[in-house]
Design a protein around this nucleic acid. Structure first.
Lengths: 140, 140
DNA sequence: GCTATAATTGCGACTATTCGCAATAGCAAA
DNA sequence: TTTGCTATTGCGAATAGTCGCAATTATAGC
């Protein structure tokens, strides 16, 4: 049972509903990125009392509150991960759809440069970069 | 009438259909980014002989052939622009949805670093970076 | 413990996009 | 110019995600 994140939400004035508890627990259940659909299925194994729209709305809330990150890994649906899992970037191949994880370090100073030059606070903590992996690049 | 891009497609073994001509012309009609829906509406002013799925498929083709770029500007639908319009990056605000254009230069050496370290050919030519604009950042 | 109120949920409709499949039609070769 | 092959299209259904609105409910104040 994850009380830490629930308490953060409560402190920020959000109501703690059974649905939010269920979603949060299901979302924290694995170390990997999860889709809304996966969370929905996990919760449904215990109870019927949940609508998929609520899953999306709760995940949106968690993302805008900075507790989760949403990433497009090119698989057709967005994936979510707790912010505490630490920043890293995703290299997603256009062609074969494979994804590589890379160190956040690569984009760290891009963030500060964008802040200085454009006063824009870029969120690159779980960003996806699309392109072609080694195997799929034309070899000439 | 845009014969240059049509010839490139022909040379690469793709068939030139009336639909592809119409879509290509409509897509090149303005300097700005366009959505599939916009292209579809433009073409429909001339003829009914076009299906929205074909618009999406043709745009996909143009993107995978490197002739167009697809970008998510956070407005709910993807936008497309000819590659020849030149690279630039988009700073998209999570909160107010406003987008700023910035120089490609900012990410130029990130591309080569990713190539060196991960042998991954990153495509950052029209990338969107999400975050908070100056107005929407907490001011403390 | 009750009540009032505003946040949250469920539901059904809607949007953007993709997909499978049968029908159509470019284009290369004869 | 006709033919045949296969790429491409149209269609309708499916998927991921969002939205408006009425019903429900968490929580602050009594």
């Amino acid at each position: 049972m994850n009380t830490i994140l629930l308490n953060i939400l409560r402190q920020r004035g959000y109501r703690i509903t059974p649905q939010r508890e269920l979603i949060l627990n299901a979302a924290m259940q694995s170390q990997a990125h999860v889709t809304a659909e996966t969370i929905f299925e996990r919760v449904q194994q215990h109870t019927q009392a949940l609508n998929i729209a609520t899953v999306y709305r709760t995940l949106d809330l968690l993302v805008t509150e900075g507790l989760f990150r949403r990433t497009d890994l090119g698989g057709g649906s967005m994936v979510y991960a707790p912010t505490e899992h630490g920043p890293h970037i995703h290299l997603v191949c256009y062609k074969c759809q494979q994804t590589l994880e890379a160190e956040y370090q690569l984009v760290a100073n891009l963030t500060s440069e964008i802040q200085q030059r454009h006063h824009f606070s870029a969120d690159l903590h779980h960003v996806s970069i699309f392109g072609l992996c080694a195997n799929c690049q034309p070899s000439n």
